[in-house]
Structures are given as C-alpha cells and as structure tokens.
Design a protein around this nucleic acid. Structure first.
Length: 862
RNA sequence: GCGGAUGUGGCGGAACUGGUAGACGCGCUGGAUUUAGGUUCCAGUGGGGCGACCCGUGGGGGUUCGACUCCCUCCAUCCGCACCA
C-alpha cells in the first residue's frame, strides 16, 4: 500500500483549486452571504505559527459555510506600511517598498502552501497606491464632515523611532514598538475626532449591536472609553483675588458634587494654565512644575510618587458656604488630560485627596454616612469612605442618598450660574500624524498665507516619492528633507506652499481594509468602496484575530466605519458582527548554564532532565512561552509543512486546545496529527469508488445500524462544534468516528459508502487536501470543496435503549439497560430489582427514589 | 490597588441548562510485526487496595437525592486598566 504523500497530494489539489477558481467570490446574490475575515498580516518576512492558527480557523469557517450553501467572501491582503520596512532600509540599504513587496511575495507563497480557501483576486497591500489614494480621499471627506482637526498638543514622542505615538500605543510609559521611554513634546498634529463618536461607540457595546463579541473585549473597550457623568463648575477666587493671568476663577470637574460640603482644597495640574501663570513669575513654583513634568510621563514613577503639592497665594470661595475659603494647590496627581485639569479635594471620600490632606494638614470632614453607621462615632481619619450612604454635615443636601444628592448639587450649581452637568471620557482624540516615510501621505498643503488647505481631489493621489534607500540612514522623516517633493503651490491662492510631510498612523490603513475587500476589484478604480458591494457584504460576519487588538485596531475600525457612514460611503456603523479572539501559540524554552536561550531542537529530554544534543551539557527547562525569536522557541511552519504536510499542521494547531486559549506547540502532537492523516488515507485507500454512483439518499433495508448511528452522530457533533468554534472538540469527534470506521470493515457496502462520504466531507474544513484525495478515491462527484455539507438524520440520533446508571445514596452502584421511553415507575422497578443494587441497599429502608428519565436513578436508603 | 478570567490524570484538554468525572489526543506500560531502531497494529493506563471497596475536579465550608458545575470564603496563576477627580 502506498504511503500517503502530502508533498505530491497537496500541491496537486492547490493547483486544481486555483485552476477551477474554486474560492473566487461569486456575484450570486441569491444565496445568503457570509463574510469571514482574519486580521490581515504585516509582511514581516515569514509566516509564523500564530498566522497558521489564525488562518486555519478562518479557513474552517469559510469552507464549512461554503458547504452549507453560503456565498462566502474570504479574502487576504497585507498591512504593509510601517516602521520595520524603514528599519530594514536603514540596515540593509533596501528601499522599504522593495523589501515589503519581496516579503509579500514570499509570504503569499507560504500561505498558499497551507491550502487556504482564499479569493486571491481581491488581494491588495495597504502600500499600493491603488489603496492609499482612496484613503486620502476618505480623509478629505472626513475633513469636510468636520471629523478632522489639526491642533497643537503635547504628544507622546518616541525618541528611538523618532515619531509620535497615540496614547493607545504607549504601554507602561514606553513606546509599543521600540520600548523606549516616551517623552512629551509639543507638536501640531492631525487628529481624527473619535471622541465625537464616544457615546455611540460605548452604547453599541451594550445595546446588542455587538452581541457577537466576547465579553472581555467589550469590557476592555468600555473601560478604555471611560465615560463618567459629573459636574463642571467654577470655583471663584475669594476676596476678588485675581491670578497673574487675570483669571478670577478656576474651572474644575467632579463626579462627586454630593461631597462639595466636604471640600477642603482646590488643586490644578502642573500643566494647567493657572500653574503656568504663577510659574512665570515665581521661581519656586516654576521649579515645582518642572519637577512634576520630569516624572510626569513614566508610569513607574507615578506608581511610586507620593502626592505632592505646591500652595498658590490664592484662595477659592466655597460655592455653598459663605466665607469658607479653600487653599489652592498645584498637585502632581492631577492630570491635565482629564476633565478640566483641576479638581476640588474632598479628603473624607477620595483616596488621593485623603493622602494629600494628611500630608498637608488639611481638614478631613466626612459628609457621607455609610448605611447603619453612627454619625458620632464614624471616622474617616485613617481611611476615606468611598461607598454609598446618606449625606450629612451638608446643609441642603442633608439626608439625601448619594445618587440623589449628586443631582441636587448639580441643579443648585446650575441655578447659581457656576456650572453645568458634564460628561467626560477617558478616550482622547486619535492623533494620526507620524513623522515617517513609509506610510500614506496626509493630503494637505501648508500655505504661508492661507494656512492649511486640503489637496484638491483632482490632485490625488499624493504619491510617495521615489527615493534612494540611503536617505533612511539619517534619523527622522526623509520627506522633510526633500524639497522637490515637499514644495508645492497653494491650491487656493497659488502661492508658495509646502506639502504636509507627516504620514498616517498605520492603524488608519487597517481601519477600512475590510470594506475594500468587500468591493469587487472591478470597481477599485472608481472609489474607496463600492456601495452596492459593501451593502451586500458588510458587516463582516466573522472576524478572527488576536486579543492584542482588542482596543486599538477594533476601536479605530469601529470609529472609521461610523465616519464612512457619515460621509456616505457605507451603510453600517459596526464593521464586525461576530468577533473571535484566538489564543497564542506557545512553545517550550530552554536556557544553558550561562543563561543563554537554547533552540528546543538542540535539546533532548531524558528522565525529566534536559541536556544539549551536541555536547550533553545540562540545560534548564524554562517556562512555556509565546514564540519569539529572542527566546529561540520559534517553530517555522515551513519546516513542519515539509515534514508532515499542511493538513497535519492545520489539524494539530486546531486540535490541542480550545481556540480562545493558548496552544502549546509540541513535536509529538504534530507527529500525532500526521499519524491521523496517514491513518485516514490507509482507511480510505482500499475503498476505490466505494461511493461511486451509490444513491445515499435511500438506505437499503439491511443497512448497518451501528455504523450509521456513528456516522450521523459524527455529522451532528462536528457541525455543532464548528458552529460554536469548538474545533478541538470537533476533532475529538472525528477521531472517534475514524476509530469506529476502522473497526467496522464488516459493515455492508452501502453503510460504508455513506460513512466514508460523510468522513471526507467532515474533514474537508480541517484537512482539505486529504479530503479531496479521499473524495476522489471513493468516487465522489466533483470536488469535495464544492460538495454540500452532510446532513444528520435526527431519527438516527435517538437510541431506543439507554444505559442508565443507578446510584444508591449518590454513589454509582450499577447500571441498567432500559427502553429509552420507559416511564419512571418501570425504571424504578427495574433498578430496584437489579441484584447489584439490592446488595447495596441491603437491609436499609428506601426513603426516596429519584428517576431522571434517560439520565440517572438515585435510590436514597438508610 | 481596581476590573476580568482560569484552576480537572504525567501533559493538552472533555463533561450539554446540577445527573456515570477524565471523551479525544500526547505520553507511558505490556504484547504482535520487524535483523534492529523507527513505522504500523492490539491491549492497558486518575490514585490506593489481592479483593469487595475506598479516595479523587486548587483549600475550607454550605445548598441538594445528587456538585467540576450553584452559594460563601480563602489560595494560586494569567490578562486588562492603572493617580480618570
């Protein structure tokens, strides 16, 4: 018998699918549509196992849905702009474009070797002019719609990458890519006004529009948007005092106006204009502000920093208490970026205010009494109380519960003309300017007389210039240093002007690619997206990717879709109906005596001890971690494909863990998957034309009941499991089915044919090449990828007899086989007459018999 | 600190809305085939006990005829947010 040879079989079927255009998206609008999308890859150079896992999952869904009669869109492309290409240019002297497109070529071939059911005719890279020109058009439309703003602001500056980062890209005070400590820098920046949509982005998380999203992702987005309702109000300065900048009041924000009677100070952020005004004239204050700004950015410092303040020669008047004056501080724990950058402090009911008040000896007056507490003995001297309760010590608010008091205080302040209710978000506008070459040019022109003007649409695209790779040797943005590209004429007055040299954050590129995929390539020249196409295909029915994109990419894409709806490009506001976040691929790590990482391939394990293959030196077994080059625990998919074939790698990566959890790559597991592939072929190979011309719709009278039941149970189970993203369980069922089939070689030919036909179709989403080979072998019609999904016959899923366990006092003591439809009385009688059960009851009195039909019998006796 | 999740054999993991804990795979043990190794096939495999049985889902407590599943409490690990007024 010939050994199954994936090296021959897999390319053969890949060529066939390609020749037949099997996975090309059809224009057939009569079928229900299904759009399945995996997050597109950055063309870093090689496909890794994380990609394989991601795309294998999407491929299972795509192939399954096709078989279920859906019109499926399953595209692939490249998130191709970004810094690594420029870094490569710096190191290798290759142009970023050349490097990127070479990587794409290579990675496309690698992906094709995996046997994915992808419509390659829709492939594009975000660095194609054909794509980014339409991104520029979208930007101009957003600009007209008031969704774009240019403003000067402090930015997170990455001194290594020499670029600006969005708040979302700063992790623990460090750049998300470079890992360098982020600095503050004031720059003119382009912003997308995502905060305009904050309310709807938040509302959709809870109103059912995203019911197909995991709870944890919705929660993360909710926290990130961070909505809070409160009061924005003025604290007038007492005694008609004025600040050096002429201000006679300070505007604060609070979510706890109910605690206003407990106020004992007012504080502003070091960046606040009031602080700045005093700093200009007072060196001591200036020094304090400077010190705060130094420690300002590093989260580590913030964590440890104690609350510090600097008192201003100023007092604020309490809004409700005539004559009460509150000291005004600059305090290091106030953030300029949130609310108004100023607060009132109520030490009795806020952790930070409490710490601050204790340090500076300010009064701590409780105004919220916890339920059941006694007003005379209740104390907040040691710790603040932040829970619910009734207001006291608070004039007109006395006796009200916290919630009511908040409203009452807001109403009073509004009546006094001092402020108004206000909603604040943690979410900031999205700064999209990057001082980089390898990105989409922002289509704007700076005129000395007219200011900032949009590039006229007729002048699009603004192409990146052809450059010599040597320009990347100098840090910073090469576009800044290219007068021939940069210098332009003002579109308004025709005068001297300069092009915007910033390019878009690459998250912009990935915020609408799914809509471009949904557009027929024939229409790619005429606009960013085609309305009829996107109306049909969007939203994406199933989106699959890593949880690391739970906030950034997914939030931006949601915003972008809304903006595209506002500007008439799309009809939906939510891009992704269902979202699945898959776990990472991990692998063992090893270190030698010097603490250097060792490749797992260089390690043998004997009796739980690890040593090097070459010299036998002892090696420590490290934790199982996400594959990364630095830890030397990366396994190349290419090596595995070469060794076992694409089907085996797909099978293993889906089999070992639930898809949302991390999966550990093990050689033995991969070998096991290969064994299964070979075993299925060994099972099918002798069955040449077993299903050829067999009418599977009419079972003959002598059909084998046991095999048929096993086949139909497998069909029902696998279908259910795929529907619920339980690929590991689907695979377990397939193993069971294969084992049954192997032991049923005496079954009649018709039942064999039915089972083999079902098997080929059930494994098709997982091991598509093997499935085609099996399908062809048994004489299936056409290609298995075009074959309809098998249907389970419900009649074969119910059994006429069931084995019911019998418990005595909750412990399993025996089992009885019984007609499935037997009534409780009959079951009880049979159970009680069972000799094993009788023995266990012994002389005890039967108190109660619980019969759960079809499930269990429990006899309570003592 | 706050929020969320997870905890089941040697390992990855099954167990539907409370109903036979350990499906399926890996590993391991024994046997067959093979000159041998590998491959393949068959059988076994939670722990203890010769056995009838007993003990077992992170620890402790509770509800129930019955708990991996529900409640309380503690512990551990992982993830997210982190002075957001």
């Amino acid at each position: 018998m010939a050994r199954y040879n994936p090296k021959e079989v897999e390319p053969k079927w890949q060529a066939r699918w390609s020749a037949d255009d099997s996975f090309k998206t059809r224009a057939d609008r009569s079928k229900p549509k299904y759009y399945v999308l995996e997050m597109f890859p950055y063309p870093s150079g090689r496909i890794h196992l994380g990609h394989v896992r991601n795309y294998a999952m999407g491929d299972v869904i795509a192939r399954y849905k096709r078989a279920r009669g859906f019109n499926v869109l399953h595209p692939m492309g490249w998130d191709a702009f970004g810094l690594p290409a420029e870094n490569a240019a710096m190191q290798t002297g290759r142009h970023p474009g050349e490097w990127t497109y070479a990587n794409i070529e290579h990675m496309r071939r690698e992906l094709q070797q995996i046997g994915l059911a992808i419509d390659w005719s829709r492939e594009f890279a975000t660095c194609d002019v054909g794509y980014y020109r339409w991104q520029q058009k979208l930007f101009l439309d957003f600009w007209k719609a008031g969704l774009i703003e240019r403003r000067e602001s402090y930015v997170n500056w990455d001194p290594v990458d020499m670029t600006v980062l969005a708040n979302e890209q700063v992790i623990d005070g460090k750049g998300w890519r470079s890992g360098a400590s982020v600095e503050r820098k004031k720059l003119s920046q382009w912003f997308l006004k995502i905060t305009d949509k904050a309310d709807d982005l938040l509302a959709a998380l809870d109103d059912g529009r995203l019911k197909g999203w995991p709870d944890n992702v919705r929660l993360m987005q909710r926290n990130w948007i961070g909505k809070s309702k409160g009061l924005q109000m003025k604290f007038r300065f007492a005694d008609d005092m004025k600040a050096p900048n002429g201000a006679d009041a300070v505007e604060i924000y609070t979510t706890r106006p109910d605690t206003l009677f407990g106020a004992s100070f007012v504080a502003v952020a070091p960046d606040h204009k009031l602080a700045q005004a005093y700093a200009e004239n007072d060196p001591e204050i200036a020094a304090f502000v400077a010190e705060c700004q130094k420690t300002g950015t590093s989260q580590e410092a913030i964590e440890k920093a104690e609350k510090k303040g600097c008192k201003l020669p100023l007092a604020a008047a309490h809004p409700f208490i005539e004559g009460r004056k509150l000291p005004v501080y600059i305090a290091n724990f106030i953030l300029m970026g949130y609310g108004t950058g100023a607060i009132f402090g109520c030490p009795a009911h806020d952790e930070r205010d409490h710490e601050f008040a204790k340090k500076y000896g300010l009064s701590i007056l409780p105004v919220v009494l916890p339920p059941g507490a006694d007003a005379d003995s209740f104390s907040v001297a040691e710790a603040p109380y932040v829970g619910p309760g009734a207001i006291y010590n608070s004039g007109f608010l006395d006796g009200l519960p916290v919630e009511t008091a908040i409203d009452a205080a807001i109403t009073r302040i509004e009546e006094m003309g001092l402020g108004a209710a206000s909603t604040q978000y943690r979410l900031r506008d999205w700064g999209v300017s990057r001082q980089r070459f390898w990105g989409c040019p922002i289509p704007a022109i700076h005129c000395e007389t007219c200011g900032v003007e949009p590039v006229p649409e007729s002048d699009l695209p603004v192409r990146l210039p052809e450059v010599d790779a040597s320009v990347f040797k100098t840090p910073g943005n090469p576009l800044d240093r290219m007068p021939q590209w940069r210098d332009a004429r003002c579109p308004k007055c025709g005068g001297k002007a300069q092009r915007e040299t910033d390019t878009f954050d690459t998250f912009v590129d990935s915020s609408w690619y799914f809509a471009r995929f949904a557009t027929n390539p024939d229409a790619w020249e005429s606009g960013p997206v085609d309305k009829a196409d996107t109306d049909y295909w969007l939203p994406v029915d199933q989106y699959i990717g890593g949880v690391e994109h739970a906030i950034l990419h997914l939030l931006y894409a949601r915003f972008f879709t809304r903006a595209m709806k506002d500007t008439g490009h799309l009809c939906v506001e939510e891009p992704f109906a269902d979202l699945f976040t898959q776990g990472m691929v991990t692998h063992a790590t090893y270190k030698d005596a010097n603490g250097a990482w060792v490749f797992p391939d260089d390690v043998v394990i004997e009796d739980g001890k690890a040593r090097r293959v070459d010299n036998g030196a002892a090696v420590t077994i490290g934790p199982i971690e996400k594959m990364s080059k630095s830890k030397k625990n990366v396994v190349s998919p290419q090596d595995i494909v070469a060794k076992y074939g694409a089907d085996a790698i797909r099978w293993f990566i889906l089999s070992d863990s639930p898809p949302e959890r991390d999966v550990e790559w093990t050689d033995s597991g991969a070998a096991g998957a290969w064994k299964l592939v070979a075993r299925i072929w060994d099972l099918v190979e002798p069955e040449k034309d077993a299903a050829k011309g067999v009418d599977l719709s009419v079972p003959p009278a002598d059909a084998n009941g046991a095999l048929r039941r096993a086949a139909h149970a497998a069909i029902a189970g696998v279908t259910e499991d795929i529907e619920h993203f339980r690929f590991n369980k689907a695979i377990a069922r397939l193993y069971e089915f294969v084992n049954t089939l192997r032991r049923s070689d005496k079954a009649d030919p018709w039942s064999r044919a039915e089972a083999l036909s079902a098997l080929a179709r059930l494994i098709a989403p997982f091991t598509p090449h093997l499935a085609e080979e099996c399908w062809a072998r048994i004489g299936g019609e056409g290609l298995v990828c075009d074959a309809p999904w098998p249907q389970a016959d419900p009649a074969l899923l119910v059994k006429d007899t069931v084995v019911m366990p019998v418990q005595v006092n909750g412990k399993r003591r025996g089992e009885v086989e019984i007609a499935a439809d037997a009534d409780a009385k009959t079951v009880e009688a049979i159970a009680l007459s069972d000799p094993d059960i009788q023995r266990h009851i012994g002389g005890a009195t039967i108190r109660k018999v619980v019969v759960v039909p079809g499930r269990i019998v429990n006899i309570v006796a003592n």
